[in-house]
Design a protein around this nucleic acid. Structure first.
Lengths: 253, 253
DNA sequence: CAAAAATCAATCATTTTCAATCAAAAACAA
DNA sequence: TTGTTTTTGATTGAAAATGATTGATTTTTG
């Protein structure tokens, strides 16, 4: 087995990682018969995608939070998609930005990409705090009623709290995205907060995997034109309705 | 077998610890084939993360290990005392009360006693949220800056947030309690928030085990007369200075 | 209690690994 | 084919981790 393609090397590296939790660069050089420089680039590239974490002398599995058994089944299915979306969203974040992070699993994947960007974060998601703390990010949390089922802050207090601030960007999760009906979510309280975040941001981004597209829920958050939609869907038949309105901005991860 | 990566050594050390409760440095040198200096650094690093406790000649499991269920048993040395204090404090809480719970381990012990009392809670302690949720208590959290070292909300935003509310009672932890110097704490930001809570409450209670008595810290919170002190100390020689001022209310658990 | 042994923290030289650069090789398009 | 872009491999100085040495501190022993 002589020359391997880049993607083949990627797959082997990731497979070795799954087996051993950690791989040494020296071992990779031997097993894949590629140069040190190439494999070093491979590791850098895979780390950028969030698929592994580089350590001195090799790489290890990235720390995955949230081993709660209940949520495991739901979240795991779209984890790769969520990661792609989060990676894309991170490209829009600049140094020194003040950003709002909505509660939710997709937005959570965005946090590891914030390290080193020196951003300030305001969030209503209690589940984000451990990761934000670990990433060493200046964090503020919205005050208000704790909704225990989703570990998020909601309610009128939360809305008036958030109105004290202005953001460079906001990143929102969303339950349903529809070309004509716009962004919607089941809980009216959450909808109010999301709407406020959009209004207070210079740029608003909605992160939604393809299962949320062309669906609608009870409470309206905003029209399609009020926020950029970032999704993993690349099927043109799904995306075409969204492109009809030229003011709707669609980004594919 | 080649040299081990740092993370691999960490994992092996921790695994050995799980098996034997204690590991000798000399054994690690032999098993991991690394130098004394390296392993010494490893132990220092792991101790910094709180994953083990260094002892002369090796390392042992940290006292607070066993991460899952009973948070009640593993906080500090004074659990029994804290529990007695919390139980006493709970006697002052009535049905339908609106109460403020300060961050801190002693106040945390109070939460299980709230079940069934139909109270509304405002808190700045992120560490309280799981227990409050479990107890099914209507909970609001203060908005503001997250202080990661103590898992609490602090800062000027927090103070102005709390001023929107009024409480029937507030329950505060305290680092130091002194008969003449009053209630003090090391962090001025925390002091401001505690002081605000006292002002906004019809009745204020400070929960402090005997190790905090007759001590003082940097930032003043309030005079002794402004809050009831609940403590486990029953040594009259300790308590007498506090009783000198007849306006100071002392409760022994 | 004092001496001896063991362990510790701090420092420095050595080795290993890293990131950046550039030239050669391969893949690709016109 | 020719020219261009992408990928790869080698080289470099910088950065990080390691191992040995030192003297200070702690524990054990007599």
């Amino acid at each position: 087995m002589n020359h391997l393609l880049a993607d083949e090397r990627y797959n082997i590296i990731l497979a070795l990682l799954q087996e051993n939790e950690i791989v040494k660069l020296a071992d990779l050089i031997e097993q894949l018969e590629a140069s040190e420089a190439t494999l070093r680039r491979d590791l850098a590239s895979l780390e950028k995608k969030g698929l592994l974490k580089r350590v001195h002398g090799g790489a290890s599995l990235p720390k995955r939070r949230g081993i709660e058994p209940g949520l495991h089944e739901k979240t795991n299915k779209f984890i790769a998609e969520k990661l792609k979306i989060a990676k894309k969203a991170a490209e829009y974040i600049s140094d020194e930005d003040c950003i709002y992070l909505d509660a939710g699993t997709t937005v959570k994947e965005l946090i590891p990409f914030l390290t080193g960007k020196n951003v300030t974060v305001l969030t209503n998601g209690l589940m984000h705090l451990p990761l934000l703390s670990e990433a060493g990010i200046r964090t503020m949390i919205i005050g208000g009623q704790v909704k225990t089922s989703t570990n998020a802050i909601v309610g009128s207090t939360a809305v008036s709290f958030i109105r004290q601030y202005r953001f460079d960007k906001c990143f929102l999760g969303m339950n349903a995205v529809h070309p004509e009906l716009g962004y919607t979510t089941p809980d009216p309280d959450e909808a109010l907060l999301k709407r406020a975040a959009i209004e207070l941001s210079r740029e608003a981004y909605v992160l939604a995997d393809s299962s949320k597209l062309n669906d609608s829920a009870f409470a309206k958050v905003a029209d399609m034109t009020e926020a950029v939609i970032i999704t993993d869907a690349n099927d043109e038949s799904i995306l075409r309705p969204f492109r009809k309105n030229s003011h709707t901005k669609v980004v594919t991860a």
